[in-house]
């Protein structure tokens, strides 16, 4: 039986792309704000991250995928009202400030919307192959008997 770290390689069949290209850039900007270390990811790392996200989204309903696309559009456009620029054009500090505003918003629906995209960003980053060992998580089915 493979150990979890041996087995943590990308799946053979790539899932269908569920976030269209223009919104993909918004999502990547979001991931980099939620997990700043994502700025250092290589191209294959991003591909792995996208594959995790697409795999998860493909199992959700059409309505949920539509809601996500709407959320990403709102996140891209809402900063125009406050900063005069879209989310992807904001500085890292402005992005943090804007997302903090959504996270703590007095309207529950907006907080929940932010929580959903935050969850997806964390899922992509920490569900990505190789993310576990990067933070020192290296489980082994052999448990106490595992070497090292």
């Amino acid at each position: 039986m493979p150990t979890p770290q041996e087995a943590s390689k990308p799946g053979s069949a790539a899932p269908p792309i569920t976030i269209p290209a223009p919104l993909r850039a918004v999502f990547h900007a979001l991931v980099k704000t939620i997990v700043p270390a994502a700025q250092n990811l290589s191209r294959p790392d991003w591909e792995g991250l996208d594959q995790v996200v697409d795999g998860t989204l493909s199992a959700r309903t059409q309505i949920e995928r539509r809601q996500l696309r709407l959320l990403l559009r709102l996140i891209q456009l809402l900063p125009v009202l406050r900063y005069g620029r879209t989310f992807t054009s904001l500085s890292p500090e402005e992005r943090v400030a804007f997302l903090s505003y959504l996270e703590d918003h007095h309207v529950q629906l907006i907080r929940c919307g932010f929580f959903a995209v935050r969850t997806l960003a964390l899922l992509g980053y920490y569900g990505r192959p190789g993310a576990g060992p990067e933070i020192g998580y290296a489980p082994d089915a052999r448990g106490w008997e595992a070497p090292g």
Partner: peptide
């Protein structure tokens, strides 16, 4: 990792 990341509040 993912479950923990989701459970820790906030971001950044």
């Amino acid at each position: 990792p993912f479950t923990t990341a989701k459970a820790i509040a906030g971001f950044g």
